[in-house]
């Protein structure tokens, strides 16, 4: 990667492609695209070092709308393509745009294997809890009972919690954000870029055609602070009205509980977020029920060697040991014999 001095100063515009954007007017994807373009411009990475890979679905049109290198691949298989490009070309900044159907249904297998390998790239999972491009069937994140075109009596599928699935697959970076959150989303994208390893970012995204208002409570001004807790490493887990905040505490039952934080004593009981704590991450990811907010921000982050570094370290060690392969020697391996002319 070029050193910063060599990197042109970019603006968001430098990351816009000449393609007409074909998402529905009002789609949450527009906001995500805008935040990604802004963040790409600020990363200090030359534009030609970005490789954006996607599968199939509304979200997967993403690469066409960025002026970087882009590859729109096969439904669900983008993690495989992204792994290949990163192994062949480790210095690239690789980004994977996917959706709830693409990543968790048809591509579920590749998704978990990418996470366990810890290839250094960023997964942006646009979760709108619906199949949009095929016009409105339930997805693997649709809530139980969801009535859609393919489930007129309600879905009887239990939904995935994408962050929980990522944690179960030993992801090293797990974050959650929402399409229209500008600052919070940009912070998460920047942190994902800085993380060495597979960074998983779940982005809640409104489909105003087939699943409008799916995240309304979390995005509307009057309910947002009650429904979201913005977690930050080293900071107390507080949410709600700033003047009368609520906090998360760990009960003796090893479950999270919500308390009103009125006194210093209350404040002392409130958990402090620690992104390296897997148990805490698990509890934060799985908060369910009306009294609990949804955790937003970087929920979990640990260091583990990246896959491509380990692969190339083995190659480098082999090359160092033999001084590089010799084709003549390789061909003549095993027993040989010579027939004189």
């Amino acid at each position: 990667m070029s050193i910063l001095e060599d990197t042109p100063q970019y603006t968001k515009k430098d990351f816009m492609s000449d393609q007409t954007i074909r998402w529905c007017p009002g789609c949450g994807d527009y906001s995500i695209l805008s935040q990604v373009q802004s963040v790409f411009a600020e990363m200090g990475v030359p534009r030609h070092q970005f490789a954006v890979v996607s599968g199939i679905g509304c979200s997967s049109r993403f690469p066409y709308y960025l002026s970087t290198y882009g590859f729109h691949t096969v439904h669900g298989r983008a993690p495989a393509f992204a792994t290949g490009i990163k192994l062949a070309n480790p210095e690239l900044s690789v980004w994977l745009a996917t959706g709830d159907g693409d990543a968790l249904s048809i591509g579920g297998n590749h998704f978990i294997h990418l996470l366990r390998r810890n290839v250094d790239l960023q997964i942006l999972l646009f979760n709108n809890r619906i199949y949009g491009l095929t016009k409105g069937q339930y997805s693997p994140t649709s809530e139980y009972g969801k009535k859609t075109k393919s489930t007129p009596m309600g879905s009887v599928d239990h939904p995935f919690n994408p962050c929980a699935l990522a944690l179960g697959a030993d992801a090293t970076f797990i974050a959650r954000t929402v399409d229209i959150f500008v600052k919070e989303q940009r912070d998460v994208l920047t942190a994902a870029h800085q993380h060495k390893g597979t960074s998983f970012v779940e982005i809640w995204q409104n489909c105003n055609i087939f699943n409008d208002g799916a995240f309304k409570e979390h995005t509307e001004r009057k309910t947002r602070d009650e429904r979201c807790i913005f977690v930050e490493h080293g900071q107390p887990l507080l949410f709600g009205d700033k003047t009368a905040p609520k906090g998360l505490v760990l009960g003796s039952d090893v479950r999270l509980h919500v308390i009103d934080v009125n006194t210093d004593e209350d404040r002392a009981r409130v958990l402090v977020h620690d992104t390296s704590n897997q148990l805490l991450a698990s509890l934060l990811i799985r908060m369910e029920g009306a009294e609990f907010p949804t955790a937003m921000g970087v929920i979990y982050q640990v260091e583990r060697p990246t896959y491509e570094a380990a692969v190339h370290a083995q190659i480098d060690a082999s090359v160092a040991r033999t001084g590089g392969g010799d084709l003549k020697k390789a061909l003549a391996s095993g027993s040989t014999w010579t027939i004189p002319g």
Binding site: T73, A80, F81, T83, G84, I85, L87, A88, N109, H113
Partner: peptide, 19 residues
């Protein structure tokens, strides 16, 4: 690259070819 399945094996191969 020993992939998780046959599809991933060719997917990664095409990704590497792109690279």
């Amino acid at each position: 690259f020993q992939a998780e399945d046959e599809i991933a094996a060719i997917g990664a191969t095409i990704g590497a070819a792109w690279g």
